[in-house]
């Protein structure tokens, strides 16, 4: 495996360098400080400024593949809502989202023992049908979600008893990675009915959602950077949260991101140096 082949770096060397750039900070547990950006603070305020005990819908539309980026974000939302005593209704449009909901309910039960199922939170689980689910939720909630994940009627659970349309809720939090996801929530729920909504998505998806801010979407957390800043915002406002190791997961994951980004910048520089040296030699690239 030679480093340079026809004036190009063998891609396997690049992969090895990336492995080191991502692996080392994880092994050495490197963390760096974060300051929440205005977009992140908008998300924080949207949750924080709601009256205590407001009802919030948490849409968990991602799979384990993107959990690396989105899981810390989802947990941060749950912890923030728990701190404010907000009532949570969990739902997933992705089948793989259901186990993610369960892992977040574990956080809720462990860190907020006063939370009671049915009264303070409800798990509606996976709802099959992609965006069609949203179209029904805005016209007849009980038609789409007649029971929760355990088969208990939503008409008997105190939190959902009076719910006929999801527009009755105070906020939608969508943590998503693709389709169906935040775009569908904006198109079928937030935008046509003026529902307040915040979102958390992968860094790749975030720029495509900026176009919806602020009228259709209050704000968005983008990737692990957004999660880390949001965690920092929560810690700044509720310092006791800083003692919770789980509430700093996003902050921890910024280490690999830093070295990964720096490696890419370095590769861009090296690539251009090689390009111009080849050009000077008259080889062309």
């Amino acid at each position: 495996m030679t480093l340079l082949k026809e004036g190009q770096i063998d891609r396997r060397w690049i992969y090895l360098a990336m492995l080191c750039a991502v692996g080392l900070p994880i092994l050495l547990q490197l963390t760096f400080p974060e300051i929440p950006s205005p977009k992140v603070l908008d998300v924080f305020d949207a949750v924080d400024k709601l009256p205590e005990g407001s009802r919030i819908l948490m849409a968990c539309d991602f799979d384990p593949a993107s959990a690396g980026e989105l899981e810390p974000m989802m947990s941060a939302f749950v912890r923030h809502c728990g701190t404010k005593n907000h009532k949570l209704i969990f739902l997933a449009l992705w089948p793989q989202g259901a186990p993610v909901i369960k892992s977040n309910i574990v956080i809720l039960n462990k860190e907020f023992p006063e939370y009671e199922y049915g009264k303070d939170y409800v798990n509606l689980g996976y709802q099959p049908g992609n965006e069609v689910v949203l179209k029904v939720l805005v016209t007849d909630f009980k038609k789409q979600c007649s029971t929760d994940v355990d088969g208990t009627s939503t008409s008997t659970l105190p939190l959902t008893r009076d719910l006929t349309k999801i527009q009755q809720l105070s906020l939608v939090i969508s943590v998503s990675t693709g389709n169906p996801g935040t775009t569908e929530w904006v198109q079928y729920v937030a935008s046509p009915f003026g529902m307040p909504m915040v979102a958390g998505t992968t860094a790749v998806q975030a720029p495509s959602l900026y176009a919806y801010i602020p009228r259709q979407l209050i704000s968005v957390l983008g990737g692990i950077k957004g999660a880390a800043e949001y965690e920092q915002a929560i810690i700044d406002h509720y310092p006791t949260m800083g003692e919770n190791n789980g509430a700093r997961e996003g902050l921890r994951r910024m280490g690999p991101q830093l070295l990964g980004h720096l490696l890419i910048v370095m590769l861009i520089v090296v690539g251009n140096v090689l390009y111009f040296s080849q050009k000077e030699k008259g080889v062309g690239a």
Binding site: P51, D162, T164
Partner: peptide, 16 residues
């Protein structure tokens, strides 16, 4: 009773 509304809210939609 057909529903409840939280404090500081002055609007309720009865959809039934």
């Amino acid at each position: 009773s057909v529903g409840e509304q939280t404090y500081q809210k002055n609007r309720f939609t009865d959809t039934k």
